[in-house]
């Protein structure tokens, strides 16, 4: 049978999986044959077997009694989602506080508040300017009208006086 020979390093890599019986047929055969004639790999196999067996010393524990009724109690007192969410936000804030980010926190708050007030001031100023601008335009128009109305009388008067002068001078012109 043309089985490829493997060296110890390659065999040692296969031994852990071989011990679990999870190697393919061909590899299993290779490991078996090698181990039969290699003391170093035999030692490795026994050490791995022994340590794996030792894990059995960590025995199982039993659940605390009443785990089923404890579960149903938990289900019955489950809170609505918004309370859960509020708790999560609270926890997140707590975590931030624990990380000593308080100064950063305060700085962000101050910036936010200043930002909001500056924006508000800016908008108030803009509104004021707009109002003033629109008022001025109307006022200007009105003022122009008033001026025209006032001047109308003067112009009419001037026209009348001119006419009068013409009449008065009429005689002298003729002569």
């Amino acid at each position: 049978m043309g089985v490829i020979k493997m060296n110890c390093t390659e065999i040692k890599k296969l031994i852990p999986v071989y011990l679990d019986g999870e190697l393919g047929q061909e590899e299993t055969l290779l490991v078996k044959e090698h181990i039969a004639s290699c003391a170093a790999c035999q030692k490795e196999l026994h050490a791995l077997e022994r340590s794996w067996k030792m894990l059995g010393e960590w025995k199982n524990i039993d659940p605390a009694p009443g785990y089923v009724s404890r579960f149903w109690t938990k289900v019955s007192i489950q809170r609505p989602w918004h309370e859960e969410a509020a708790q999560k936000v609270g926890e997140a804030l707590d975590r931030l506080r624990r990380r000593r980010l308080a100064p950063v926190y305060v700085a962000v708050c101050v910036l936010l508040i200043t930002g909001v007030f500056s924006l508000r001031n800016y908008w108030q100023m803009r509104e004021g300017q707009d109002l003033a601008a629109s008022l001025n335009q109307e006022e200007l128009d009105m003022a122009k009208d008033v001026e025209l109305a006032e001047n109308f009388d003067i112009i009419q008067e001037m026209d009348f006086l001119e006419d009068l002068e013409v009449i008065e001078n009429w005689g002298s012109l003729e002569t």
């Binding site: 999986v17 022994r50 894990l55």
Partner: peptide
């Protein structure tokens, strides 16, 4: 999984066989 378990078994062997 094969690779994880191989490395884990090797690590456990190193720790446990030496310790015991």
């Amino acid at each position: 999984v094969k690779s994880l378990l191989s490395r884990a078994k090797e690590n456990l062997k190193e720790k446990l066989i030496k310790n015991t």
